[in-house]
Design a binder for these strands. Structure first.
Lengths: 103, 103
DNA sequence: TAAAGGTAGAAATATAATTACTAAAGGAGG
DNA sequence: CCTCCTTTAGTAATTATATTTCTACCTTTA
């Protein structure tokens, strides 16, 4: 069984190493899971679904289950969704804001 | 991680042995999975969800319908990278900013 | 009380996951 | 073109975990 880890990781533009750090695991394990050489345990499967903000069924490559209630979005995804809707001018303002946050 | 195998098995009024036969496995393994002593692999997890006629999320003890989202395509790479490096506190500030930015 | 069905303890074994080292592949910049 | 750097994956050793086997303990029922 090969979970759809690579697909969702790349969607978030994370490297294997970055994803590994987010779930306290090794880059090599991410590689193994993505290739199907091994499988993450159930606890890790949940972590992955949470980071990708998808259902476990989706991570397993099954049909998404359409939600009736408000989806429990992850904070990263909420931000990305907002950013996508910005105009170029607003994006410029956002970049300035990000610079201020850093320094 | 303890999957909700026992609950759904009993709902179907199956013994561990009967369930084991349905998925070509041993009674002892069912026992181990139910107690949390071990975990079934991903392929078996799918088999179980199919026999119980539930989502994998339900088998994991999550809400029947968790979250669904569209693919995050077309995000500006630089912004995405910046956002990812923020602390949680900074992310909250950013969300505030994003809400204000489009009035 | 005996017998049968259902489940789980303990220990040995088998199998799989994880790690560590490292090399290949692909880009960025000199 | 060359070199450095990043990203990913091959191999093999190690570690961890699942699985098996044998069996004992319940509970039910005749």
């Amino acid at each position: 069984m090969k979970l759809k880890i690579k697909e969702y990781r790349e969607e978030l533009q994370l490297t294997q190493k970055e994803l590994a750090e987010k779930i306290n695991n090794s880059q090599r394990n991410i590689s193994n899971w993505e290739s199907g050489a091994s499988e993450p345990d159930c606890e890790t499967i949940i972590k992955l679904a949470e980071i990708f903000d998808i259902s476990i069924d989706q991570l397993f490559g099954r049909e998404p289950q359409y939600s009736v209630r408000e989806p429990a979005m992850g904070i990263d995804y909420n931000i990305l969704k907002e950013v996508r809707n910005l105009t170029d001018t607003q994006k410029f303002a956002l970049m300035q804001f990000l610079r201020e946050i850093h320094y």
